[in-house]
Design a protein around this nucleic acid. Structure first.
Lengths: 356, 356
DNA sequence: CGAATGTGCTATAACGTTTCAACGTACGTG
DNA sequence: CACGTACGTTGAAACGTTATAGCACATTCG
């Protein structure tokens, strides 16, 4: 309870030196003579002195912090990205302020304001909607901005993203190689860029294999959750066995798990009667009743790359050039899309614990 | 790129007033005359002035921020808690710095240091291990600390937690009421407080029903994940049908899902031949092949309560008394533990408080 | 032996804000 | 008409830090 905000000045008094010397001990210990240094360090310890970050920042003009604004902290995609950002930032001695826009323009705008007031080194953001005046003005005022998981339309800023078209292509190419003739795509709404990109990738794979566009049966869903997947699965199960697709590519794993459950209910064997490939490689994918093949995005790496670009822009020597980094996703093949003989995909872990 | 850090002083110059007046417009607009106010506001807008939070904080002595240190940002338990904290904090005009200790003492310690340097209003933390000297010294230096999801052993601080013993009791009472005679508990390691509490609750329910302690078949697992659940399930399935329990209570949902999958594999009907109750009510619980009954914790509320206590302690009028708030969990009954007729969950929990 | 050259330290001036005492100015009031 | 009293505004003093110019003293060199 003893509220004693101890400052550098009191440390100086106790150690019998000027306050400039204390500052030197803190920041450039090598310039101060051995005996003085130890004396000051002893005083620091004795008083329990803690630097005042606000004062440092005020002096420095900028804080040693970067802002990360995501659409949903509960989404594993963003938590993994956040970890990557944090790893990279802490190596550079920067702290991360994590903000959750909840997909709301108002909250996003409020957080941008807070981050600017904190004079952060820069901002990593997955914007609620595309081009944004608010964001542009932040940048104009001198705070670097890097777009995460959305490709920058202009060349005015850096961005990191994953090639969703390629992801769709990988999934469907894999199914084609396994000999499937009739393939369905389950996903929606198509207004979400990621969803339509994945579908486009699926179409691309078919076209490259010499199929016509129409070969892809598209089942558009209203959302990307398990329930929507179950509905789509129910629809598939209702098709006469002759005209039913033998494989389905889902825009994310939740949909795929929904489809999978519905197949179990209708006693349709997976992968024998219906092969399934999902997207995102969520924690549960490997642990599903039938381990799920899935397209994995380098989420952690995405975060690291974004932070790297930002740090380069903010702290670099001024030679920084804006870049658009695009990562390639990865197909993890498991039981849901292959015959019973072959082994699982890459050595994947199963779900970790939750000691809530 | 035009890096023009515009300060209150330049705004004052443009508006033709003193800088104290600009500050008043910003903080107590009602004390400044209408025409002056609009003139200043115009200048602020024209120059794109953004307050410097560091300077404000330096002046104020404390930042308008609270710190939240969790064991794992990716864990849905903590993300929900974090949302609760954020909701409460933003209502009080405070920002939240979210830190991830990753269950590592070193990272935790580093973050505590950072938070102290930022002069946060207070810290919400789920400590890596129990009593901690580091944490005590933070508190001694005047930063309020509230423990989250771990009950304070001493009376020296506030804490919020959920009654895990009651949770276990609820689950097993429910199974007993449904007429089950042989009940198993799956969970581990027992060194995790949450796990042993839940088991103790299960025992308590049995004892209250007049059973002897030995009636609970305990299957200890090495971890709380799906794989461990599958192993436990496999063990259960291997028991002769006569001596096999008719119900199982799992220490978390991942275990329960593992058990459930194994039952499907062995064609053991759930809930007819084996009823299952999990813990945590994770997102997938309701969407499992057989929707899973589970004990739900008021996670969001836990976060809110923790933030409330902290804010009361930090900003209150000094009449604050430390409290240990304990929430009651809630059983959500779904198909995995009942006949097909009955409906879903229960009403909301009540908090019981113990003054300190 | 005076001058150049270090070596350690000190004193001081910022950084941008908020607060608070003081200072007009205008207006009723006695 | 002097006088308290609002009201609106100003000026200066903090807050705790870092950077920088300068000072005292010892050492080395021409």
């Amino acid at each position: 309870m003893a509220d004693t905000p101890v400052s550098i000045r009191e440390v100086a008094a106790l150690a019998g030196v000027s306050l400039g010397t204390v500052s030197n001990v803190l920041n450039r210990p090598e310039v101060v003579a051995e005996p003085t240094r130890t004396r000051v360090q002893a005083a620091i310890k004795q008083l329990g002195f803690i630097r005042n970050e606000s004062a440092r920042q005020l002096r420095a003009g900028r804080s040693r912090t970067i802002g990360l604004v995501v659409l949903d902290v509960a989404n594993p995609f963003f938590t993994d990205v956040a970890r990557g950002v944090e790893d990279e930032a802490s190596e550079a001695g920067l702290a991360v302020i994590l903000c959750n826009s909840d997909d709301q323009k108002a909250k996003e705008s409020r957080y941008l304001e807070v981050l600017e007031e904190h004079r952060v080194q820069g901002i990593l953001i997955t914007p609620v909607s595309g081009a944004d005046k608010r964001l542009a003005s932040v940048q104009r005022r001198g705070t670097p901005v890097v777009l995460v998981d959305s490709r920058s339309p202009s060349r005015g800023q850096c961005s990191v993203s994953v090639d969703d078209v390629l992801g769709g292509d990988l999934a469907v190419s894999h199914l084609l190689e396994a000999g499937h003739q009739q393939i369905a795509f389950v996903g929606g709404p198509m207004s979400v860029r990621q969803v339509s990109d994945r579908r486009d990738g699926a179409v691309r794979a078919l076209e490259r294999a010499g199929r016509r566009d129409a070969d892809l049966l598209v089942i558009e869903t209203p959302a990307l959750n398990v329930t929507a997947g179950q509905r789509a699965g129910s629809h598939l199960a209702g098709l006469p066995a002759g005209s039913r697709p033998t494989a389905v590519f889902c825009a994310n794993d939740l949909l795929a798990l929904g489809v999978l459950q519905e197949m179990t209910t209708h006693r349709i064997a997976v992968p024998e009667s219906l092969a399934i490939v999902g997207y995102d490689d969520v924690e549960f994918a490997a642990a599903a009743a039938v381990p799920l093949s899935s397209v994995r995005q380098p989420r952690h790496q995405l975060g690291r790359a974004a932070a790297q670009l930002l740090i380069e822009e903010a702290l670099g020597d001024g030679t920084h050039r804006h870049r658009q980094v695009v990562f390639e996703p990865d197909l993890v093949v498991r039981a849901s899309s292959q015959g019973p003989t072959q082994g699982g995909g890459a050595a994947q872990p199963v779900a970790s614990e939750a000691a809530g």
